[in-house]
Amino acid sequence: MKVVKTIKEVRENVNTWKKEGQTVGFVPTMGYLHEGHGSLIKKAREENDKVVVSIFVNPMQFGPTEDLESYPRDLEKDSKFCESLGADLIFNPEPEEMYKDGFSSYVDMSVLTEELCGLSRPVHFRGVCTVVSKLFNIVNPDRAYFGQKDAQQLAIIKHMVQDLNFDIEVIGCPIVREEDGLAKSSRNTYLSAEERKAALILSRTVKLGREMLEAGETDADKIVEAMKKNIETEPLARIDYVKAVDGLTMQQIKKVQKPMLVAMAVYIGKTRLIDNTIWD
């Protein structure tokens, strides 16, 4: 497995593989990899001849008060993890490699980015769409893999690929959880022991919402209110949002329908965590 820092090196490797008729799977990440990322790499390994993983903490998707500088990084550990799962190439550029002096071209989207995380993180999805578009152009993969924990991001990337005619299949992979139910996240490392225990309110609340759906509840507002009340029983939790939205447009809905996304963002102490369930 190779670790490369430049766009030129990525393209040289991928072009060689393509000339040999080999398919390329791509897993874009911000590093500090865990089993959730691992599930994406494994899926890419199963479905493609070659696998590229990008590790890039993208400054464009962080707001001015967010955790860009403190976001966890460990390239050595990530490299061993990727190699153990059969990745062929890691692309680990510096910000200056991705955004040259004078950079002023962005990929923006309306509608899908205006709800959920887009409300409290207004610059986030412009940064995501821009960097993913650049990575798609650099890597030129046949397939790209994203986790369903970031369900809004997955819907946005699929829509962007359709709108901009990328010849790439975008594949969503299920949420990977700890044994006690907490969704795997690089930000879980921020949690103290007390906060880690409190964070279980997210997965318990997702389970509550899922149970109401499976029991036949058709009023989306009732599900959301029950979920909010459940989160409020945890003193360390502070709700950013809990919403039921159309699974394709990300717009709020009143009545249960398919596809539907019930999603939440909750602060446990200072750490913002997300979780969801998809009704499809």
Rank of each mutant, 00 (worst) to 15 (best):
A199G: 11
F125N: 05
L89I: 10
E94P: 05
I171Y: 11
V176F: 14
L33K: 00
D88M: 00
T130F: 08
D150V: 12
V245Y: 08
W17V: 11
N92K: 02
D280Q: 15
K77S: 13
K149G: 15
V111Y: 11
G21C: 03
D142P: 07
K184D: 10
Y190G: 00
Y106G: 08
T16Y: 04
R210H: 13
K42H: 04
K243I: 00
Y32K: 00
Q252H: 06
I274E: 07
I253V: 15
T249E: 12
F81S: 08
V111H: 08
V262Y: 02
S186G: 07
N58Q: 02
I239F: 04
Q252D: 05
I55N: 12
I168E: 11
M160Y: 02
I201S: 01
S84N: 05
F56Q: 08
K149T: 14
W279Y: 15
K77I: 06
M212T: 00
K50T: 12
S54K: 00
S185F: 10
E114W: 00
K197T: 14
N137C: 04
V256I: 12
M30K: 03
L164I: 11
R187N: 05
P235N: 05
P174I: 00
S186I: 06
K184M: 14
K207L: 12
M227L: 04
S84F: 04
P122N: 06
L273H: 12
E179G: 04
E195T: 08
M30F: 00
M98Y: 09
S120Y: 14
K222S: 14
L89R: 02
L208N: 09
G209H: 04
E232P: 04
F146R: 01
L89F: 09
F136M: 10
A183V: 10
N230T: 14
E66T: 11
Q148A: 14
M212L: 13
A183E: 14
A237N: 07
W17Y: 13
Y71E: 07
A199K: 02
V14R: 01
E20Q: 06
D78H: 03
V24F: 10
F136Q: 13
S105A: 01
V139S: 09
E211D: 15
K19E: 15
R73L: 04
A237F: 00
S120T: 12
G25W: 06
E178I: 03
I201A: 03
G102I: 02
G31D: 12
M60A: 07
T233L: 06
E76S: 06
R121I: 15
I175A: 06
D163Y: 08
Y99N: 12
G31W: 04
L200Y: 06
V256G: 00
V139Y: 09
R187A: 10
E35A: 00
H159G: 05
K80L: 15
Y106C: 04
M60Y: 06
Q22I: 06
D246G: 02
N188I: 05
R272L: 09
M160A: 06
R210Y: 12
T65W: 05
D67L: 05
V224C: 09
G172C: 14
C129Q: 10
K158N: 14
F103D: 15
K270M: 12
L273N: 09
F91V: 08
I168V: 15
S110D: 14
E9W: 00
F103Y: 15
V107E: 05
L273F: 11
L85D: 11
I253H: 06
G216V: 03
E179W: 05
I268S: 13
T130M: 09
G36R: 02
E35S: 00
E195V: 03
E217G: 07
Q257Y: 03
